[in-house]
Design a protein around this nucleic acid. Sequence first.
DNA 1: CGCATTTCTTGATTTTCGTCAAGGCTGAAA
DNA 2: TTTCAGCCTTGACGAAAATCAAGAAATGCG
Lengths: 187, 187
Amino acid sequence: MFQSIIESINRIVSPPAEQLSLLIERLSIRQVPKDGFLIREAQTCSSVYFINQGYFRHFNVNEAGEESTIDLYVHNEWMLEYKSFVSQQPSQNCIQATTDSEVLALHARDIHDLARISERFFRLMMILEMGMRSQEFQQNRLTPEEKYQKLLSTRPELLQHFPLKHIASYMGMTPETLSRIRKKISL
Amino acid sequence: MFQSIIESINRIVSPPAEQLSLLIERLSIRQVPKDGFLIREAQTCSSVYFINQGYFRHFNVNEAGEESTIDLYVHNEWMLEYKSFVSQQPSQNCIQATTDSEVLALHARDIHDLARISERFFRLMMILEMGMRSQEFQQNRLTPEEKYQKLLSTRPELLQHFPLKHIASYMGMTPETLSRIRKKISL
DNA sequence: CGCATTTCTTGATTTTCGTCAAGGCTGAAA
DNA sequence: TTTCAGCCTTGACGAAAATCAAGAAATGCG
């Protein structure tokens, strides 16, 4: 149950065992069915989540009803709706499971308690928060093909677990454009 | 000297006076001449900054030597090179003053001490960190004209203090495109 | 298994924006 | 004052990607 999250935390900040167990005992488990929402629009996100099993899509719906994908997550990754989490205001975005999933939740109040105990947990929090920001595709002004090459080298696992239309949206291009890039590269 | 930062902190988290003075006494003052660098490439950012006077540009230089503007800051705003700050790794980006400027610096070590004392400071830290992430123009998949309208409604002061070429770069478009949008809107 | 729905691909067309080039404006320095 | 450099604007052009449309492939479901 907690094996994966322990490994993840140890990779990031390697806290002493007694500190780590303080964190583990604060975790709560939540099952999310396929297409279920972990965060809905207008809900406030007050936990960070670690994915034990499953896949999630983090997206925004604009006035016209068009969805744009903010991020995609696979098992053993951390996840949060950072804007809502930090501001404690209702989220404008959603996080939805794309398969039956299981997450571990750590509440903001517990995070603060832990950060008070340990500078390592303080750093963990900041690093998780930062990791969530890495929409690196929009930055850097890359061409669609460069974005795809970057995805191939940094997060190839996404291609195994999400439909191409979501991948395309995540990279900020249309499915048609992605399809043409893939054809071109495979030649 | 500390009037503006006190007002800013009170707007954000309103700490008790005795906590606030703990923070104030940790601040250090730094003068930066026009075109001087607050953060250079390969330097590590270990403070957050509050701008007492002046204007700053936060940008990245790619392999080809092209600059892309990450953010623009005016007086009474907070500023940090978040990626370097959180990871404590050398920065790939620069922060440069565009006029003679004065900033107040708060060191990471002091921030952690303060966060331990007070949940309010913990929240302050997270909020500052989040503010720095708001490259909202690249997200949301806006057209250049929508980006400009958004800038007009959210940060019109930037137009008074920075050349249009930097504004254009900040919004991810060429100066020519910005010029045409401005002409069109003024008709 | 067969049907319906969604996803993916492909082609034709249009739009948008970047690039290139030229000229005007402004402010600083000689 | 003149000169120069940097900034901004404008026009012409082209490349790239979006859109539109149709059909193929895959997936889910009764």
